[in-house]
Amino acid sequence: MKTAGDCRVIKFDAVTKRYPGGHEALRSVSFAIDKGEMVFVTGHSGAGKTTLLKLAAAIERPTSGTILLNGQNIGKLRRAALPYVRRNFGLIFQDHKLLYDRNVFDNVALPLAIAGISGREAGKRVRAALDKVGLLHREKAMPIALSGGEQQRLAIARAIVSRPAILLADEPTGNLDANYARDIMELFRSFNQVGVTVIIATPDAAPSTTGRILHLDHGMLAS
């Protein structure tokens, strides 16, 4: 039986997140995102953007409220089930979280190894992902030898390599110059055009590209 909520990829219902120490990063946040949407989460530093993304990807658990992923309440899942929930997402972290002890190729291969894909099939997919972000010629390089923008694109390649249905990007254009930032945004737009749901956190009040905006102010959603 299909209900109206089923076509929503992500649905937050009165979600509150209080971190240990008592700080409320999100207060009774409710919204829904449809499949194939492109959404920007905006707000000042400390507004709760990262927290929102982490809750969506089941990295943090809500203090109260429910979060539905494809109609499933992920707050109710056993801890052992969470890794499989996370594999629905391609995650681009605010601090990249690249592994500096291995080269570009191996960084991108990590999500595939986790999903049990290796060998020739993995090689093919890794190169396809690197090609999309324009890093194919650097596959043997170590991340430390990449520029800031290249590291950002490496992080994107790692997020898309397992072909997730949803991309979560936390300030992917953080400290890049305007031209570079526009290129990256174009990249996300191209993923969105092939049907990927894209959610991007950005500090800009009004991102230059079109798309729905969820604006956070001190943990509360402004309509």
Partner: peptide, 8 residues
């Protein structure tokens, strides 16, 4: 990182 991106 592995745990964050879905490693069991």
């Amino acid at each position: 990182v592995s745990a964050l991106i879905g490693a069991t």
